[in-house]
């Protein structure tokens, strides 16, 4: 693929994120390519999740959090004062570490987000489409009125993915989506991510190096800088990061020498 064909889904420019006085992430420049999977890896406490949440302004739910710099989405800085974070979150969906379906029926789990965002189309079709998109339709099509919490962990996580794609985002953020799941369920989610990347841009935070190597196209390695702040140490195509990284720290982390 020629360099000029690469389209960016979202881009962080000189982005620093603070919790009160503490700078959690410092001056990150990160280009996320459209319809690709970008993995964020790094040792604990280096601001991976904070970075991920910066892309849909979820950090703002922590009252002391604030950001400096820009996150460009379709040429617009999402931190501009005229941007409503609620609108950003509709376009940049999120899947969490622990499966957190709503304590509602499977149908309502998927339909709810679309409904509150004012979806105009046929809801039954959207629910079916989204559940199929998340590869869970066959398992739940006969029990759509059952509580989402009655499903297994892996199914719950796919339900959460289904409800995220029901609001038709461009980008899906995944914060360690498999860390609470068993290996089989993890495999299902990883396969699903590959399928989803045809239609969506995915950014995933993971502690599992193999997972990053298996599923992602690009990898961003975050590390702890001075004053325990998170910095983007190295970014590039996953193959390169895992086989021939530029930085010694990246290689040390990937080979398990620290972190």
């Amino acid at each position: 693929m020629a360099k000029k064909d690469i389209e960016l889904a979202i881009e962080a420019r000189n982005l620093s994120i603070y919790y009160g006085d503490f700078r959690a992430v410092t001056e990150v420049n990160l280009k996320v390519v459209q319809n690709k999977i970008t993995a964020i890896i790094g040792p604990s406490g280096c601001g991976k999740s904070t970075m991920l949440r910066a892309f849909n302004r979820m950090n703002e739910l922590v009252p002391t959090a604030w950001a400096e710099g820009e996150v460009l989405y379709h040429g617009k800085n999402i931190y501009d004062p005229d941007v409503d974070p609620v609108e950003v979150r509709r376009r940049v969906g999120m899947v969490f570490q622990k499966p957190n379906p709503f304590p509602k029926s499977i149908y309502d789990n998927v339909a709810w987000g679309a409904r509150v965002n004012g979806y105009k189309g046929n809801m039954d079709d959207l629910v079916e489409q989204s559940l199929k998109g998340a590869a869970i339709w066959d398992e739940v099509k006969d029990k759509l009125d059952q509580n989402g919490l009655s499903l297994s962990g892996g199914q719950q996580q796919r339900l959460c993915i289904a409800r995220t794609i029901a609001i038709k985002p461009d980008i899906i953020l995944m914060d360690e989506p498999c860390s609470a799941l068993d290996p089989i369920a993890t495999l299902h989610i990883e396969e699903l991510m590959r399928e989803l990347s045809e239609d969506y841009t995915i950014i995933i935070v993971t502690h599992n190096m193999q997972q990053a190597a298996r599923v992602s196209d690009y990898t961003a390695f975050f590390n702890l800088g001075e004053g325990r702040t998170g910095i983007l140490d190295e970014f590039g195509e996953t193959d390169k990061i895992f086989t021939n990284p530029d930085h010694q720290t990246t290689e040390d982390y990937i080979t398990g020498r620290f972190g």
Binding site: N56, M58, L61, V86, E87, R89, R90, R91, G93, M94, F96, K98, N100, P101, F102, P103, W112, G113, V116, N117, C160, R163, T164, I167
Partner: peptide, 17 residues
């Protein structure tokens, strides 16, 4: 659980919703 609020906000719901 806070995860429920996160899920809701993450879906583009307002605080009141």
């Amino acid at each position: 659980p806070n995860s429920l609020r996160q899920a809701s906000f993450g879906m583009g719901a307002t605080r009141w919703q």
